[in-house]
Amino acid sequence: MGYYVSVESGVKLYVEDINSEGSKTIVFLHGWPLSHKQFEYQFDVLPFMGYRCIGIDWRGFGKSDKPISGYNFDRLADDIRTVVDVLQLDNFTLVGHSTGGAIAIRYMSRHNGYGVSNLVLVDAAAPIGFTTETATRFLTQALNDRPKMMQEVIDNFFFQYITNSFSEWFFQLGLQAAGWSTAAIINTLRDEKLYGDLPNIHVPTLIIHGVHDKVIPFAQAHELNQTIKNSQLVPFHYSGHGPFWEERDKFNKLLKQIIG
Protein backbone atom coordinates (compact mmCIF):
# COMPACT_ATOMS: atom_id res chain seq x y z
CA MET A 1 0.00 0.00 0.00
CA GLY A 2 1.29 3.42 -0.91
CA TYR A 3 0.36 6.71 0.76
CA TYR A 4 1.67 10.16 1.59
CA VAL A 5 2.78 11.59 4.93
CA SER A 6 2.99 15.36 5.48
CA VAL A 7 6.35 16.32 6.98
CA GLU A 8 5.90 20.09 6.82
CA SER A 9 3.52 22.57 5.23
CA GLY A 10 3.35 21.80 1.52
CA VAL A 11 5.72 18.82 1.66
CA LYS A 12 4.55 15.22 1.63
CA LEU A 13 6.71 12.11 1.45
CA TYR A 14 5.65 8.99 -0.41
CA VAL A 15 5.67 5.84 1.71
CA GLU A 16 5.38 2.29 0.38
CA ASP A 17 4.06 0.08 3.17
CA ILE A 18 4.12 -3.64 2.39
CA ASN A 19 2.54 -6.23 4.70
CA SER A 20 1.41 -3.75 7.33
CA GLU A 21 0.36 -6.68 9.54
CA GLY A 22 3.90 -8.06 9.67
CA SER A 23 5.28 -8.95 13.09
CA LYS A 24 8.51 -6.94 12.73
CA THR A 25 9.14 -3.73 10.79
CA ILE A 26 12.00 -2.75 8.49
CA VAL A 27 12.30 0.86 7.29
CA PHE A 28 14.36 1.37 4.12
CA LEU A 29 16.12 4.62 3.15
CA HIS A 30 17.28 4.66 -0.47
CA GLY A 31 20.44 6.13 -1.94
CA TRP A 32 21.03 9.19 -4.11
CA PRO A 33 19.52 9.85 -6.63
CA LEU A 34 17.14 6.87 -6.50
CA SER A 35 13.89 5.97 -4.71
CA HIS A 36 12.43 3.24 -2.52
CA LYS A 37 12.09 1.12 -5.65
CA GLN A 38 15.80 0.25 -5.54
CA PHE A 39 14.81 -2.25 -2.83
CA GLU A 40 12.44 -4.17 -5.10
CA TYR A 41 14.38 -7.39 -4.53
CA GLN A 42 13.91 -7.06 -0.78
CA PHE A 43 10.23 -6.20 -1.10
CA ASP A 44 9.74 -9.30 -3.26
CA VAL A 45 11.00 -11.55 -0.47
CA LEU A 46 10.95 -10.15 3.06
CA PRO A 47 7.19 -9.49 3.41
CA PHE A 48 6.60 -13.18 2.66
CA MET A 49 8.86 -14.00 5.60
CA GLY A 50 6.45 -12.08 7.83
CA TYR A 51 8.15 -8.68 7.89
CA ARG A 52 6.52 -5.30 7.39
CA CYS A 53 8.64 -3.39 4.87
CA ILE A 54 8.40 0.40 4.65
CA GLY A 55 10.16 2.25 1.86
CA ILE A 56 10.36 6.05 2.16
CA ASP A 57 11.17 8.38 -0.75
CA TRP A 58 13.01 11.34 0.71
CA ARG A 59 11.90 14.82 -0.25
CA GLY A 60 12.92 15.67 -3.81
CA PHE A 61 13.13 12.04 -4.93
CA GLY A 62 10.88 9.30 -6.23
CA LYS A 63 7.20 10.04 -5.75
CA SER A 64 7.67 12.51 -2.89
CA ASP A 65 7.12 16.25 -3.16
CA LYS A 66 10.06 18.22 -4.47
CA PRO A 67 10.48 21.52 -2.62
CA ILE A 68 13.43 23.77 -3.40
CA SER A 69 14.85 23.56 0.13
CA GLY A 70 15.48 21.14 2.96
CA TYR A 71 18.27 18.96 1.57
CA ASN A 72 20.63 18.91 4.55
CA PHE A 73 21.01 15.86 6.77
CA ASP A 74 19.22 17.49 9.72
CA ARG A 75 16.07 18.23 7.72
CA LEU A 76 16.11 14.84 5.99
CA ALA A 77 16.48 13.08 9.35
CA ASP A 78 13.66 15.19 10.77
CA ASP A 79 11.47 14.10 7.86
CA ILE A 80 12.09 10.47 8.77
CA ARG A 81 11.25 11.19 12.42
CA THR A 82 7.93 12.70 11.34
CA VAL A 83 7.07 9.57 9.34
CA VAL A 84 8.02 7.40 12.33
CA ASP A 85 5.76 9.48 14.58
CA VAL A 86 2.81 9.53 12.18
CA LEU A 87 2.99 5.77 11.61
CA GLN A 88 3.65 5.17 15.32
CA LEU A 89 6.61 2.93 14.55
CA ASP A 90 8.60 1.33 17.36
CA ASN A 91 11.19 -1.42 17.69
CA PHE A 92 11.99 -1.31 13.98
CA THR A 93 15.12 -2.01 11.95
CA LEU A 94 16.44 0.99 10.03
CA VAL A 95 18.23 0.19 6.76
CA GLY A 96 20.05 2.98 4.93
CA HIS A 97 21.93 2.65 1.66
CA SER A 98 24.64 5.12 0.61
CA THR A 99 23.25 8.63 1.27
CA GLY A 100 20.33 6.90 2.97
CA GLY A 101 22.93 5.45 5.33
CA ALA A 102 24.17 8.96 6.10
CA ILE A 103 20.61 10.08 6.79
CA ALA A 104 20.11 7.05 9.04
CA ILE A 105 23.26 7.93 11.01
CA ARG A 106 22.08 11.52 11.47
CA TYR A 107 18.66 10.20 12.57
CA MET A 108 20.31 7.99 15.19
CA SER A 109 22.35 10.90 16.52
CA ARG A 110 19.84 13.74 16.25
CA HIS A 111 16.82 11.76 17.46
CA ASN A 112 18.61 9.41 19.87
CA GLY A 113 17.74 6.43 17.69
CA TYR A 114 14.05 6.92 18.44
CA GLY A 115 12.19 3.65 17.84
CA VAL A 116 15.17 1.86 16.26
CA SER A 117 16.17 -1.55 17.58
CA ASN A 118 18.73 -2.43 14.88
CA LEU A 119 20.64 -0.34 12.33
CA VAL A 120 21.86 -1.61 8.97
CA LEU A 121 24.27 0.58 6.99
CA VAL A 122 24.72 -0.48 3.38
CA ASP A 123 27.68 1.08 1.56
CA ALA A 124 26.94 4.15 3.65
CA ALA A 125 28.20 7.56 2.49
CA ALA A 126 29.80 8.11 5.88
CA PRO A 127 31.61 9.54 7.68
CA ILE A 128 32.23 11.50 4.47
CA GLY A 129 30.47 11.48 1.10
CA PHE A 130 31.85 12.94 -2.13
CA THR A 131 35.26 14.47 -2.58
CA THR A 132 35.29 18.03 -3.90
CA GLU A 133 36.48 16.73 -7.28
CA THR A 134 33.67 14.16 -7.60
CA ALA A 135 31.07 16.64 -6.37
CA THR A 136 32.18 19.27 -8.88
CA ARG A 137 31.93 16.81 -11.76
CA PHE A 138 28.51 15.50 -10.74
CA LEU A 139 27.20 19.00 -10.02
CA THR A 140 28.21 20.24 -13.46
CA GLN A 141 26.52 17.26 -15.08
CA ALA A 142 23.40 17.52 -12.90
CA LEU A 143 22.87 21.14 -13.93
CA ASN A 144 23.71 20.68 -17.61
CA ASP A 145 23.19 17.05 -18.67
CA ARG A 146 21.54 15.07 -15.90
CA PRO A 147 21.01 11.93 -18.03
CA LYS A 148 24.78 11.83 -18.61
CA MET A 149 25.32 12.11 -14.85
CA MET A 150 22.90 9.26 -14.21
CA GLN A 151 24.66 7.08 -16.75
CA GLU A 152 27.97 7.68 -14.99
CA VAL A 153 26.33 6.74 -11.68
CA ILE A 154 25.20 3.44 -13.18
CA ASP A 155 28.56 2.75 -14.84
CA ASN A 156 30.29 2.92 -11.45
CA PHE A 157 27.53 1.40 -9.33
CA PHE A 158 27.69 -2.33 -9.97
CA PHE A 159 30.53 -4.83 -9.93
CA GLN A 160 28.45 -7.61 -11.46
CA TYR A 161 27.08 -7.60 -14.99
CA ILE A 162 23.74 -5.88 -15.52
CA THR A 163 21.55 -6.19 -18.60
CA ASN A 164 20.63 -3.22 -20.75
CA SER A 165 17.05 -3.57 -19.55
CA PHE A 166 18.10 -3.43 -15.89
CA SER A 167 20.32 -0.44 -16.60
CA GLU A 168 17.43 1.41 -18.24
CA TRP A 169 15.16 0.69 -15.26
CA PHE A 170 17.78 1.98 -12.83
CA PHE A 171 18.37 4.99 -15.07
CA GLN A 172 14.70 5.96 -14.90
CA LEU A 173 14.67 5.65 -11.09
CA GLY A 174 17.33 8.36 -10.95
CA LEU A 175 15.52 10.66 -13.34
CA GLN A 176 12.37 10.63 -11.17
CA ALA A 177 14.17 13.06 -8.89
CA ALA A 178 14.11 16.80 -9.48
CA GLY A 179 17.21 18.37 -10.94
CA TRP A 180 17.50 20.83 -8.05
CA SER A 181 17.21 18.17 -5.36
CA THR A 182 19.74 16.00 -7.19
CA ALA A 183 22.20 18.93 -7.19
CA ALA A 184 21.45 19.91 -3.59
CA ILE A 185 22.32 16.45 -2.28
CA ILE A 186 25.63 16.55 -4.15
CA ASN A 187 26.51 19.67 -2.18
CA THR A 188 25.38 18.01 1.07
CA LEU A 189 27.53 14.95 0.40
CA ARG A 190 30.49 17.25 -0.27
CA ASP A 191 30.04 19.53 2.73
CA GLU A 192 28.58 17.54 5.63
CA LYS A 193 30.62 15.18 7.81
CA LEU A 194 29.31 12.58 10.25
CA TYR A 195 32.29 11.95 12.52
CA GLY A 196 30.52 13.50 15.51
CA ASP A 197 27.38 11.40 14.97
CA LEU A 198 28.97 7.96 15.07
CA PRO A 199 29.62 7.74 18.85
CA ASN A 200 25.91 8.45 19.41
CA ILE A 201 24.79 5.15 17.88
CA HIS A 202 23.90 2.70 20.65
CA VAL A 203 21.99 -0.11 18.93
CA PRO A 204 23.38 -3.26 17.28
CA THR A 205 24.65 -2.16 13.88
CA LEU A 206 25.29 -4.28 10.81
CA ILE A 207 27.64 -2.73 8.26
CA ILE A 208 27.34 -4.20 4.77
CA HIS A 209 29.75 -2.98 2.11
CA GLY A 210 30.75 -4.16 -1.33
CA VAL A 211 34.48 -4.84 -1.54
CA HIS A 212 34.54 -3.48 -5.10
CA ASP A 213 32.60 -0.27 -4.35
CA LYS A 214 33.83 2.55 -6.62
CA VAL A 215 31.44 5.11 -5.12
CA ILE A 216 32.17 4.84 -1.38
CA PRO A 217 35.53 3.13 -0.71
CA PHE A 218 35.47 -0.04 1.35
CA ALA A 219 37.95 1.57 3.76
CA GLN A 220 35.14 3.77 5.03
CA ALA A 221 33.25 0.68 6.18
CA HIS A 222 36.25 -0.21 8.37
CA GLU A 223 36.18 3.29 9.82
CA LEU A 224 32.50 2.94 10.68
CA ASN A 225 33.11 -0.47 12.23
CA GLN A 226 35.93 0.90 14.40
CA THR A 227 33.90 3.89 15.60
CA ILE A 228 30.37 2.51 16.08
CA LYS A 229 30.10 0.44 19.23
CA ASN A 230 28.47 -2.98 18.93
CA SER A 231 28.86 -3.00 15.15
CA GLN A 232 29.67 -5.86 12.79
CA LEU A 233 31.16 -5.47 9.32
CA VAL A 234 30.23 -8.03 6.66
CA PRO A 235 32.17 -7.60 3.39
CA PHE A 236 30.32 -8.48 0.20
CA HIS A 237 33.06 -9.89 -2.00
CA TYR A 238 31.06 -9.95 -5.24
CA SER A 239 29.48 -6.51 -5.00
CA GLY A 240 30.19 -2.92 -5.85
CA HIS A 241 27.87 -0.21 -4.53
CA GLY A 242 24.74 -2.34 -4.87
CA PRO A 243 24.91 -5.46 -2.66
CA PHE A 244 21.13 -5.26 -2.13
CA TRP A 245 20.87 -6.48 -5.74
CA GLU A 246 24.28 -7.97 -6.59
CA GLU A 247 24.19 -10.44 -3.69
CA ARG A 248 20.52 -10.14 -2.84
CA ASP A 249 20.07 -13.65 -1.41
CA LYS A 250 22.93 -13.14 1.03
CA PHE A 251 21.68 -9.62 1.77
CA ASN A 252 18.15 -10.76 2.57
CA LYS A 253 19.35 -13.63 4.73
CA LEU A 254 21.55 -11.27 6.75
CA LEU A 255 18.61 -8.93 7.35
CA LYS A 256 16.57 -11.88 8.56
CA GLN A 257 19.36 -12.94 10.91
CA ILE A 258 19.88 -9.52 12.50
CA ILE A 259 16.15 -8.91 12.93
CA GLY A 260 15.28 -12.41 14.10
Rank of each mutant, 00 (worst) to 15 (best):
V120M: 13
G96H: 05
A77M: 11
D74L: 15
M108K: 06
I103L: 11
D85C: 01
L119A: 07
Y114N: 09
V95C: 13
P127R: 14
P127S: 13
D78I: 10
N112W: 02
A104E: 01
G129W: 01
S109H: 06
F130M: 15
V86H: 02
F130S: 09
I128Q: 10
Y107T: 07
L89H: 07
T93Y: 05
G96Y: 07
Y114S: 08
S117Q: 10
L121M: 12
T82S: 09
G101N: 08
G100F: 03
G115V: 03
A126F: 06
N112V: 05
D90A: 10
T93I: 11
N118F: 00
A125D: 15
D85K: 05
R81A: 13
R106W: 05
V95S: 14
Y107N: 01
N91Q: 14
A102Y: 04
A102G: 15
T93A: 11
L89Q: 03
P127D: 13
G100C: 03
V122N: 13
D90V: 10
D79I: 12
V86W: 00
R110S: 07
R106Q: 14
T82D: 01
A104P: 09
G113K: 01
D123Y: 11
N91Y: 05
A126Q: 07
Y107H: 12
T93V: 12
